[in-house]
Simulated scan of single mutants.
Amino acid sequence: MPHEITILKLRNWDACGSGREWFREKFPEGGVYGDVMSALYKDKRYEDASWLASNIYADVVTKEVVEGEVRSIHSAAKEAATTGDYAHAATTGYGAHAATTGDYAHAATTGSRAHAATAGSRAHAATAGSRAHAATAGSRTHAATTGYGAHAATTGDYAHAATTGYRAHAACLGLGGKVKIGKGSYGVLTWHDGQRERALTIYEGEGGIEAGVWYRAEDGVAVRCDGDDA
């Protein structure tokens, strides 16, 4: 089912008063994620759109969420590659890639082997197809994938990487990152031991690591993250 947004959910996410008022006016009965994102882009509420995407990726990552992201981005821009801030890119075809370089400029794809990549801060990347990888380079830029063998990777600090597909790995190379992995997958987290940065690898099914759960590195140990902590 499409991911639904409600005023209660926005309150739980500590949405600003202006954002809640806008949502009540546009969606008095609640709304589906893709429709809400499309309306935000139409009204040029780009930072609110980025905030919503961040909370959705931390809450749940499904094929429907990614497809909703593609639809909403298509309503704001038709180009597959962009360079400006808030300049989003989306594709739906097989092997059709999406890339952005500006801040708050998201990239999303739904086709198989159709990769998504972003370079700006707070610019998220999401894919729904098999072997369609998502990569981000900026700080607080999340990467999410749902397809088989579709990896998610981030290099910026406080940037989350999430996968739900089988054998689809997630890696956070920046400090303060979090990962969520699927069945048969592994995740990589980066932490600082006081002298240098180190990598921590977790494997689904080993050491208590579960699929569909957020983890962060704390003193070299994977710690489960729940709710607002993710």
Rank of each mutant, 00 (worst) to 15 (best):
R167I: 15
L52D: 01
V179R: 02
W214Q: 11
E47N: 06
T190P: 07
T62M: 08
H97G: 13
A90Y: 02
R224V: 15
S112Y: 11
K178T: 08
A89F: 06
A153Q: 08
T62L: 08
A144E: 07
Y158I: 15
R122S: 06
L189R: 08
W13V: 03
E4A: 07
G93T: 14
A170P: 14
E197H: 04
F23H: 08
R167G: 09
A96W: 05
D14F: 11
I7G: 13
R45I: 01
H192F: 10
T100G: 05
S130V: 10
S139F: 03
I56G: 01
A58Q: 12
R20W: 00
W214S: 06
I181E: 01
A161K: 00
T83Y: 10
S50D: 11
P2T: 08
H97N: 15
L52W: 00
N55G: 15
V65R: 00
W13I: 03
S38Y: 02
D228V: 09
A53W: 08
G174D: 04
D226W: 08
V36P: 14
T136F: 01
S18Y: 11
K9I: 00
G30F: 06
A39M: 09
G184V: 06
D193V: 08
R45Q: 10
A211R: 13
K183V: 10
D43Q: 15
E69Q: 15
G149C: 03
T201P: 03
A211N: 01
M37V: 15
G120P: 02
W214Y: 13
G111N: 08
A143R: 06
D103N: 12
A162Q: 05
A168S: 09
R24W: 05
A99N: 14
A217G: 11
H142R: 09
D229S: 14
S18R: 15
V70M: 12
Q195F: 06
W51F: 09
A90V: 04
S54G: 14
G220I: 10
C225A: 14
C225T: 15
A211D: 01
C16M: 13
T127S: 05
R20F: 00
A126K: 01
G138K: 01
V223Q: 12
A170T: 13
T141F: 06
G212Q: 05
K9D: 10
G19F: 09
T163V: 07
A80F: 14
W214D: 10
H74M: 11
V61Y: 02
S18E: 11
Y41E: 14
H192E: 07
A123E: 02
R11P: 00
T141W: 07
K183E: 12
A80R: 15
R45N: 05
G147W: 12
T83H: 08
V66N: 00
A89G: 12
M37P: 02
S18L: 11
L8N: 10
T91L: 04
G156W: 00
A143L: 10
I73A: 13
D157C: 13
P2C: 07
V32F: 14
W191G: 05
E69P: 00
